[in-house]
Simulated scan of single mutants.
Amino acid sequence: MTPIITRTVEEARAHIQKARLAGKKIGCVPTMGALHEGHASLIRGARSENEFVVVTVFVNPTQFGPQEDFSRYPRQLEADCQIAGASGAELVFAPSVEEMYPSGFSTSVDIQKLGDHLCGRSRPGHFRGVCTVVTKLLNIVRPDGSYFGQKDAQQARIIQQLASDLNLPGIIVVLPTYREKDGLAMSSRNRYLSESERQEALILIQSLRAGQELFARGERETAKIRQLVREQICQKPNIQLDYVEVVDSTDLQPVDRIQNKALLAVAAFVGKTRLIDNVFLL
């Protein structure tokens, strides 16, 4: 399938409205492009529940900090459209920065509490940018369902709350993290890794699984789980740990002892590339 490619809000809305008037359910997969099999799994998930799938491709400048990789973030629209179409998307909405943030734009959307820890502490302002762009995208597309990956667990939870609080259209569907055969979470940033860094990055999921195993054996004190994960990651000399946290899966606040469903999350720099991953402790 070759998807329709639109660059403007007006054009995208026209195609979406046509599909809606034809009685089709609308699915949306917001992305920053550089699509890979993880994105493809989200698109397939959206296609299984909707007759018309919109993939948004927009590298959002407002969610990058001044020292982050906005300028070098991969941009490959032609390849993205091929992947999107092959996975079941009918429309790719790929606006410019000027289309999304025209001259005089002065509104932002922020969220309290859920963004205080994990990546929110390490990347000030990041989730304000995420919330602002997602609010715009969901109001442009007005989908029946929007699809996100569990790898970005904090982002997914924040978007669920955002959609609920602001009555954004459609349901928010969070699908499992898509992994390579060796367990590494699929990420657009994996392409930055050298071959040796790629192998070292496996310690992230290996340490998380070790934390899960400790929990399964009955450990409920989060300090001990975090210590185990931290010690394993810090054995790799080329990895700089950002955080290891155990938080409540609903409010994303740190917990000392696990009594309800919790999220064990890590972020680390592998060389110069920042990667994140997480698992649930059930």
Rank of each mutant, 00 (worst) to 15 (best):
residue 1 M to C: 14
residue 1 M to R: 14
residue 2 T to M: 15
residue 3 P to N: 13
residue 5 I to H: 14
residue 6 T to Y: 03
residue 8 T to R: 14
residue 11 E to A: 14
residue 12 A to Q: 04
residue 21 L to H: 13
residue 23 G to E: 05
residue 25 K to P: 02
residue 27 G to F: 05
residue 28 C to D: 05
residue 39 H to N: 08
residue 41 S to H: 09
residue 43 I to S: 01
residue 47 R to V: 10
residue 48 S to T: 13
residue 50 N to H: 15
residue 50 N to R: 12
residue 50 N to Y: 10
residue 51 E to M: 12
residue 51 E to H: 11
residue 53 V to F: 02
residue 53 V to C: 09
residue 55 V to M: 12
residue 59 V to F: 14
residue 63 Q to E: 15
residue 65 G to M: 07
residue 66 P to S: 11
residue 66 P to G: 10
residue 69 D to E: 13
residue 70 F to D: 10
residue 70 F to V: 05
residue 72 R to L: 12
residue 73 Y to P: 02
residue 74 P to F: 08
residue 75 R to F: 12
residue 76 Q to G: 09
residue 77 L to W: 15
residue 78 E to C: 14
residue 78 E to L: 15
residue 80 D to F: 09
residue 81 C to N: 08
residue 82 Q to Y: 10
residue 83 I to N: 01
residue 87 S to G: 06
residue 89 A to L: 12
residue 92 V to E: 06
residue 92 V to G: 05
residue 98 E to I: 09
residue 105 F to G: 07
residue 105 F to Q: 12
residue 106 S to R: 06
residue 109 V to P: 05
residue 113 K to H: 11
residue 115 G to V: 10
residue 117 H to M: 10
residue 119 C to V: 09
residue 120 G to C: 12
residue 125 G to C: 08
residue 130 V to E: 03
residue 132 T to K: 08
residue 132 T to F: 02
residue 135 T to H: 08
residue 135 T to W: 08
residue 139 N to I: 04
residue 139 N to S: 13
residue 141 V to C: 02
residue 143 P to W: 04
residue 147 Y to S: 04
residue 148 F to P: 01
residue 153 A to Y: 03
residue 154 Q to M: 06
residue 158 I to D: 01
residue 160 Q to F: 00
residue 162 L to H: 00
residue 163 A to H: 09
residue 164 S to C: 04
residue 169 P to C: 09
residue 173 V to S: 09
residue 174 V to Y: 05
residue 175 L to V: 03
residue 176 P to K: 13
residue 177 T to M: 08
residue 179 R to P: 00
residue 180 E to Y: 08
residue 180 E to I: 00
residue 183 G to W: 01
residue 184 L to P: 02
residue 184 L to Q: 04
residue 185 A to Q: 07
residue 186 M to A: 13
residue 187 S to I: 05
residue 188 S to Q: 03
residue 189 R to L: 00
residue 197 E to I: 02
residue 201 A to Y: 04
residue 201 A to N: 04
residue 202 L to I: 03
residue 203 I to R: 05
residue 205 I to T: 12
residue 205 I to V: 12
residue 209 R to L: 05
residue 209 R to W: 03
residue 211 G to C: 09
residue 214 L to N: 07
residue 214 L to C: 03
residue 215 F to Y: 15
residue 219 E to W: 06
residue 221 E to K: 15
residue 221 E to N: 15
residue 224 K to H: 13
residue 233 I to G: 00
residue 233 I to E: 07
residue 233 I to K: 06
residue 235 Q to I: 09
residue 240 Q to P: 00
residue 241 L to Y: 07
residue 244 V to N: 00
residue 245 E to D: 13
residue 251 D to Y: 03
residue 253 Q to L: 15
residue 255 V to L: 13
residue 260 N to A: 14
residue 263 L to Q: 02
residue 266 V to P: 02
residue 267 A to G: 07
residue 268 A to H: 00
residue 270 V to W: 01
residue 271 G to K: 01
residue 273 T to Q: 02
residue 275 L to M: 07
residue 276 I to Y: 02
residue 277 D to V: 10
residue 279 V to S: 06
